[in-house]
Design a protein around this nucleic acid. Structure first.
Length: 425
RNA sequence: GGAGGGGUGCCAGAGCGGUUGAAUGGGCCGGUCUCGAAAACCGGUAUACCCGCAAGGGUAUCGAGGGUUCAAAUCCCUCCCCCUCCGCCA
């Protein structure tokens, strides 16, 4: 959410952002509604002031003077309730529009309608050259008996998986390794629920757009979260923190759920795109200073790159363009790891800087050194998400005999240098 | 699941349906005093929006929403949250 005053005063900047991000929003309608709300609110407040004055007089008046004052109060009350009803309707409409207003993208973010305009800025690591015909991750899973895919689909449906044997331990090792790395960087681990109320999803900006990506728990007011960003951001909703509490840096651990509505037919095989996964997420709340945000952005990115480097995965860095980044974002950089079977890089990490866009939605503020109340800035980046990263780890680290080696940094977590095939069929 | 208690400002804790944004105490900030500090004393100490150059004024907010009333922190309804006891349970 942007500051309504900012929108009023800089309609051109907002209009440009709407266009560059491809957001469907009629800014004129919003500004028009804003003017109506302002006018109606002023009228209503005048009436309220009069009602208050009248009620006070009534209380102080002698019995013989009360009659007319009460009559006056009744008339005022009637008019006020009509105005307030109308006002509430307009305000609700305005808020709905306000929730759609995108953040202004950074001036140096590439401009373009979709991911084809993302700009690769760097590559790291060597793309592996195999002296044998490499298998894709599903073949490796089958060969080593590391997962149930077809069988579990009978139980839990498409986009489900059941890891087996060393792969279960490998997943745990990866999560723990990533968590350790982020904690080492000064973050506080937090395990969050995988479900939350709707306001939390509105807070991060996953709602009102993107509602179709989220599972609802029938008979409750809860929905399943697709990232601990949702819970981490809502955790301090409505609070006014003190500057000394900032920055708040969380390493959020949660099981994530995504309905993957609209991606039918895409990545249907294996572990690439599944309904349920586990993630360690970096989440930062910092003071409202663009330079501070930028510093954190670099750190979040560096943390994730360090993890990928420790995993010995070749990856590239993408500066995400305006049309592909989320509406709330000032800047987004994705990390993509090499997938040998596809001959291309695929996203494993997404680093985002939102300034106060999320904090405004969750009303998350702090008192700065001068005592002024400000909305905090928020940032987030993946530390690791499994099982997708297993796709890259298996395929890039496979050997001629179909075995898969464990990167050095992970060996102490797993207690072995090579993943062993599972025994039981 | 059954029975009960409670949600007020940074914290603790008052609050008769009317002049209460809210007593009192603590904390915090500023000041007086002091060589300095403590103590004592004095003053200040919510957020959002609107009007105003400003000073200042107005409106809303006492868990949330709705209702009764000329008037609601105070009465009624719904919901949310917290706590205690019993049962069940990883």
């Amino acid at each position: 959410m942007l500051d309504l005053k900012f929108i009023r005063e800089h309609p051109e900047a907002v209009r440009r952002a709407i266009e560059q991000k491809g957001v469907k929003l009629d800014l004129e309608a919003l500004l028009d509604l804003d003017r109506k709300v302002l006018e109606l609110r002023r009228k209503t407040e005048e009436l309220l002031a009069e009602r208050n004055k009248n009620a006070k007089q009534t209380g102080q008046a002698g019995p013989e003077e009360r009659g007319p004052l009460i009559e006056r109060g009744k008339a005022l009350g009637k008019e006020i309730s009509e105005r307030e009803r109308e006002l509430r309707g307009l305000e609700a409409g305005l808020r709905q529009l306000l929730l759609l207003v995108p953040q202004i993208p950074a001036p140096n973010s590439p401009i373009g309608p979709d991911d084809s305009h993302n700009v690769e800025t760097r590559r790291h690591g060597e793309i592996p050259k195999f002296a044998f015909t490499p298998l894709d991750h599903v073949a490796l899973l089958e060969k080593n008996n590391w997962a149930e895919l077809e069988r579990i689909a009978k139980v839990s449906g498409a986009r489900s998986y059941a890891l087996k044997g060393d792969l279960v331990l490998y997943e745990m090792a990866l999560l723990r390794f990533a968590m350790d790395q982020i904690v080492e960087a000064g973050f506080t681990p937090i395990s969050t629920p995988s479900y939350a109320r709707e306001f939390a999803f509105v807070g991060t900006g996953h709602f009102p757009t993107g509602m179709d990506q989220v599972y609802q728990l029938e008979g409750t007011d809860l929905l399943l979260t697709g990232t601990s960003e949702v819970t981490a951001n809502a955790l301090h909703a409505e609070e006014i923190l003190s500057q000394t509490q900032l920055p708040l840096c969380y390493a959020g651990l949660s099981t994530c759920f995504r309905s993957e509505a609209g991606s039918a037919g895409k990545d249907t095989r294996g572990l690439m795109r599944v309904h349920q996964f586990n993630k360690v997420e970096q989440y930062v709340l910092c003071p409202a200073d663009p330079a501070e945000s930028a510093r954190w952005f670099d750190r979040l990115l560096a943390n994730s790159e360090a993890i990928l480097q420790a995993l010995e995965l070749p990856y590239r860095v993408l500066e995400v363009c305006t049309g592909d980044m989320g509406p709330g974002k000032v800047r987004q950089v994705d990390l993509e790891c090499w997938v040998p079977s596809e001959g291309r890089y695929r996203e494993t990490h997404s680093c985002s800087m939102l300034y106060d866009w999320q904090a405004r939605r969750t009303n998350l503020r702090y008192r700065d050194a001068s005592g002024k109340v400000q909305y905090a800035h928020t940032l987030n980046n993946t530390a690791i998400a499994t099982p997708r990263i297993l796709v890259m780890l298996l395929e890039n680290h496979q050997q001629a005999d179909g075995s898969v080696y464990v990167p050095k940094a992970l060996q102490k977590y797993l207690g072995k240098q090579l993943l062993s095939p599972s025994l039981s069929e």
